[in-house]
Design a protein around this nucleic acid. Structure first.
Lengths: 335, 335
DNA sequence: GGGATTCGAGAGAGCGCTCTCTTGACAGTG
DNA sequence: CACTGTCAAGAGAGCGCTCTCTCGAATCCC
């Protein structure tokens, strides 16, 4: 278990009978190295099992070849966003793999955690920073952008900070959902909205209100926070306040799932008495009782696009300030 | 958007009127610095907004203050392990935050991805490596351990490699589950087993077999791969082969969930005709129809313990080669 | 009061790598 | 044949930090 001294460029150079600079050129894929020499170097690298020391490289190149992905983490509840986080991680990971960069994952929940993220990212320990699902108007993305550190956030940032973002078409998706309800003959359509300090929550409510207004229908609103618990509570309230409702659009599948149960417990049949549509299309949506009609958002793609944008930014290119990804209504049995 | 030159130790030293070494001592919390000087240095650090360059530090300390978490990622399907991965990530993240280290997440799916992980981890770019949910007998953990790189895996590694691990008490949990079925009067108890190239799948099947054997009951086995699709297929097969079954233990909640639907579709009532128990206690388990009785495993705690062990290993301490976490039967309505 | 001891602070040598600058070899040109 | 141009390979200067070693001053004891 001895910590075998790792071979350095120097060692490889000696073995191959060339200079350090030449080995560096070969390792970094420079074309200006004669074939026989390149081969000799590669042989030496293989024989010695040489792996470049990234810290040393970073020190001189001023790059770290890693990017940070910052996600909020409400300390108390388990990842309520369920499949959303893993999906984004996968998308980001795929793109980074292709670019041969590392993913530093930072879960920021507590104020202390947030400070840690701030210290780490502003300290330029990464080549860029990705923010997922911001709550409220976090000043950090703006700060980083001002420092010249590449940043891309998911979801239009609140308080119009000039930070590039990638988002899904919430309004379009919700419009399609509510329209579907209206086309199905529903007239007393309620919504279980998401938290109003998150863009996703805000936009999805806007989509509902605009579509209802356009159809000349009244708004029936209860606000939740995307979790099942809040969805059940909101459904209860709606049932009490508007016993005649015949349709529900829930801003998340988790809340829609809970609504399904609450409705059943209240003796309402879905979709006969009340039609229900969710948002997200998490895997569970296809397995609820009845299977949930919902708005699918391309989560993995969201992660990929964010990363692509960030990498382009880090490469010095200029990018479009906003990218919008399409959503799609997935029809199942609940509406 | 000018890349403002970041202040270095040198700059702080000049400003505080001391030497670089002294600033380094203050920054790293050495006690042998007189109070007034320490204050002067801290003031200079604050005024200049100094943040240490981690690459430079790593270069000399030979530490990176970051650890890698390697997770498999079947390229095609979305994180089927659902809440398991986020849970582990949270646990790991919590412990690392406390230790002020970074989390480098690596999703290894493709052979290329695996090579990338191997290159990165063996290259000592991290202070330690955590492996989650290994498939088959991956040689990498053993290789790393042999190289003297701290490694901890989740789940007893197959092919008895001498690598420290943390695991949950699969057998104990399954035994409690099957016992519960037997105590409830069930005699024709089937199991939907997990993949037999993963410890979790293997151990959970062992638990079933041992308990059934001890009770003198026959084994009714169908193998799945932890996903819903496989669970539905397995349940179909069991129903065909053993139409008289009255109990099912599924090795994952996802498979149990699918079994619930398949049973209902086949006209069986749960739990009246067939009692069902799952394993994992994912959030959805409380919301299935009927709510699923299942074995809870402390996933976040698993991540935390793995990390604690790894950090101790990295600190040069010797640790127990295996840590076992308890599981608990959560009784709901399905059994 | 003088020598031994303690302790805080500075000097300076790298850690392993990249990259600019320089050199040397060779081919092409007048 | 001398000269210039071209291109491959080497020399060497750091990147920003830590850490050992050294030194000077302050403290202590007999």
């Amino acid at each position: 278990m001895t910590t075998a001294q790792r071979p350095t460029l120097e060692a490889v150079a000696a073995r191959a009978g060339v200079s350090r600079a030449t080995v560096s050129r070969v390792v970094n894929g420079s074309t200006t190295v004669a074939e026989p020499i390149r081969e000799a170097v590669n042989r030496a690298v293989a024989e010695l099992g040489y792996v470049p020391n990234l810290a040393a490289r970073s020190l001189v190149t001023q790059r770290t070849d890693s990017i940070a992905l910052v996600m909020p983490e409400a300390a108390t509840r388990v990842f309520s966003d369920d499949q959303v986080f893993p999906g984004i991680i996968r998308g980001v990971s795929q793109e980074l793999e292709a670019a041969d960069k590392q993913l530093v994952l930072m879960l920021a929940g507590s104020p202390a955690g947030h400070q840690r993220v701030e210290r780490y990212t502003t300290g330029r320990h990464v080549d860029g920073v990705l923010f997922a699902s911001l709550h409220g108007a976090d000043p950090l993305p703006g700060t980083l952008a001002r420092l010249g550190i590449p940043v891309v956030v998911s979801g239009r940032p609140l308080g119009d900070v000039p930070v590039p973002y990638v988002d899904v078409d919430h309004v379009g998706g919700v419009t399609a959902a509510v329209r579907h309800l209206i086309d199905g003959g529903r007239r007393r359509i309620a919504t279980i909205a998401g938290p109003q300090d998150m863009v996703a929550g805000i936009e999805r409510l806007i989509g509902y209100r605009e579509t209802m207004a356009a159809a000349g229908l009244p708004e029936l609103i209860a606000v939740g926070d995307f979790t099942r618990e809040s969805g059940a509570a909101a459904m209860d309230r709606l049932l009490t306040d508007h016993p005649d409702l015949d349709g529900v659009f829930a801003a998340s599948d988790l809340m829609a799932h809970a609504a399904l149960r609450t409705l059943r417990a209240a003796g309402r049949r879905v979709p006969e008495d009340v039609a229900v549509i969710g948002f997200d299309d998490i895997e569970t949506a296809a397995y609820t009782e009845p299977p949930l009609t919902t708005v699918r958002q391309p989560i993995v793609e969201l992660g990929r696009r964010m990363t692509q944008q960030l990498l382009r930014l880090a490469a010095g290119e200029t990018i479009e300030p906003a990218v919008m990804l399409p959503t799609e209504l997935i029809r199942r049995a609940s509406a």
